[in-house]
């Protein structure tokens, strides 16, 4: 993966969002002093490299009424955790799904799946669906509801390196 100066400039110019006009890429290209075709080609390349995951909109969970969020955590047999993690991730209500290391003895869970919902009850129902999917491979589980946002900064993606 290589990012040249122009790619960096594209990332810098678009990470806060695209202008909401009929031809957003033409507007960005003009500010970057490149043609729209070059910009689109470079964006396609960034996408094929996995640097761009998708082009679209992020819904605001809270504004849409999804005020409850629970981090469900699971102790899964290491032999099957990757296979099951794929299945948990593909559930339509799981927003993030990761395998992480245990921190024994205080933390036995190796699979983390974030679940959002309109209420804790709804999140718990979704948690139960994950439990059904995991079946006997799950040795223990817990769910940690967030009670307060203590800090939230926009993720600053550095476009200055390279």
């Amino acid at each position: 993966m290589t990012l040249d100066t122009k790619d960096r400039a594209i990332i810098e110019a678009t990470q806060a969002g695209l202008p909401l006009v009929p031809q957003p890429f033409a507007v960005v290209a003009e500010t970057l002093d490149m043609s729209e075709n070059e910009l689109l080609a470079r964006l396609k390349s960034l996408k094929s490299q996995g640097i761009i995951r998708r082009i679209g909109a992020a819904p605001n969970h809270y504004r849409l009424g999804m005020t409850a969020n629970g981090m469900s955590v699971w102790d899964i047999d290491d032999k099957v955790v990757d296979e099951l993690g794929e299945q948990v991730g593909s559930l339509s209500f799981v927003t993030h799904c990761y395998r992480r290391p245990r921190a024994l003895p205080v933390w036995r869970y190796n699979l983390f799946a974030m679940v959002h919902g309109n209420s804790r009850e709804e999140v718990l129902i979704k948690r139960d669906r994950i439990a059904d999917l995991l079946g006997e491979a799950c040795r223990a589980s817990d769910i940690l509801f967030s009670t307060r946002i203590l800090k939230k900064t926009g993720m600053r993606l550095s476009g200055q390196k390279g």
Partner: peptide
Amino acid sequence: VRQLRDDGFLTRFGPFFDAEALG
């Protein structure tokens, strides 16, 4: 889309980057 963004239903419209892929 602009109205939905201004009303806060959408946080952002644009490319979503893989932060780790950026280094």
